[in-house]
């Protein structure tokens, strides 16, 4: 079973995302900011990270920078997920190393499509 870490300071977003990802056969863990997420990644690197942009303690951009510098060779696929939906914000996320970008609000179709684009097809991973 593939694993996904949801990093978002909104409990509501984490709950919605968890429901979607579990329905897509992911084992899900959660963190409410970048610092806690880095700790979880140090314990066990997930296959995919759904990453919010604006968070207390450590925001998505700094988290991603720190993650990319980590000595671990296992770099997960990162889906940036934010309400900052302008081209500049998307370009910054890609520049920071995000693999894909999800604009809030999102639904199951969008999450499925974006996971597919970074190499996680629902059928393949459910098998």
């Amino acid at each position: 079973m593939k694993t996904c870490l949801i990093v978002d300071d909104s409990a509501v977003i984490r709950k919605v995302a968890r429901r979607i990802l579990e329905s897509l056969n992911f084992r899900v863990s959660e963190a409410e900011d970048g610092a806690k997420a880095l700790g979880l990644c140090a314990e066990a690197m997930p296959d995919v990270i759904l990453l919010d942009w604006n968070m207390p303690e450590m925001d998505g951009y700094d988290f991603l920078k720190a993650l990319r510098q980590s000595p671990s060779g296992d770099i997960p696929k990162v889906l940036f997920c934010t309400t900052e939906n302008d081209v500049g914000a998307i370009a910054r996320a890609l520049h920071a190393g995000a693999d894909e970008y999800i604009m809030k609000p999102f639904d199951r179709d969008i999450v499925t499509a974006k996971l597919d684009q970074v190499g996680f097809t629902q059928q393949a991973d459910a098998a």
Binding site: L94, E100, D109
Partner: peptide, 10 residues
């Protein structure tokens, strides 16, 4: 967001 890679969106 359905099918379009973000690079092509930008």
């Amino acid at each position: 967001q359905r099918g379009l890679p973000v690079q092509l969106l930008v």
